[in-house]
Design a protein around this nucleic acid. Structure first.
Lengths: 99, 99
DNA sequence: TTATTTGGTTTATAAAATAAACTACTTTAT
DNA sequence: ATAAAGTAGTTTATTTTATAAACCAAATAA
């Protein structure tokens, strides 16, 4: 009855990152930090995990002289996110549907 | 933009328990174990946490000679569950709505 | 020049989930 | 009657995660 929830996505911060990335072409570290309110350390760790999972692509560049980390969600990530959302619905729905 | 997700509910097993309980008058340990597929040990721990949080009431009785643990969600639990679901929607919704 | 800020990474600590082992019986088989 | 197996859990130990704290390198400001 309850599908497993992808543990990589069932994490507040990683879910927020994915949620932001799925809406945009790309987003950088600072933007993600601001939007999520996460600490830089936590964000760094969670971005790594999403990258290692193959859900996002991370590009390290410089803007002028300052380092800049750009993140993009990819097709694998989009698919995983959609599957996660679908699985989750079962947990949220719905009084009386006992199937 | 992203509300915090109640960490007590943002757990696969505890969420499944709450999801089951919200649909019924009551449910016993064995039913919850079967429906969730959890191990007895894990289920025991998570039921305790939900009880300590004041989200469910737990009654220990006997059915014949065998012990029986009955769980019921209460108003506090229902409210917490509904709030969690609402907060979660922000993470799932929706490309293009950047607000 | 030293102090502060930016943009991070790495390491350490706290919290959670999970698994394994155990308790206290009851039922079945011998 | 006794041993073996099953039920309904709890407790303890181990692993995994998340989070926080400390650190680094370079840039900018005082």
């Amino acid at each position: 009855m309850f599908k497993d929830l992808n543990p990589l996505l069932h994490s507040q911060l990683r879910l927020a990152i994915m949620s932001l990335l799925i809406g945009v072409e790309e987003a950088d570290f600072v933007y993600l930090r601001e939007q999520t309110g996460a600490s830089a350390g936590n964000l760094s760790v969670q971005i790594d995990k999403l990258q290692e999972a193959g859900y996002i692509d991370v590009e390290k560049t410089f803007r002028g002289k300052m380092p800049r980390t750009i993140c993009r969600i990819n097709r694998v990530g989009i698919e995983a996110f959609n599957e996660y959302v679908q699985a989750l619905q079962e947990y949220l729905n719905k009084r009386g549907m006992n199937k």
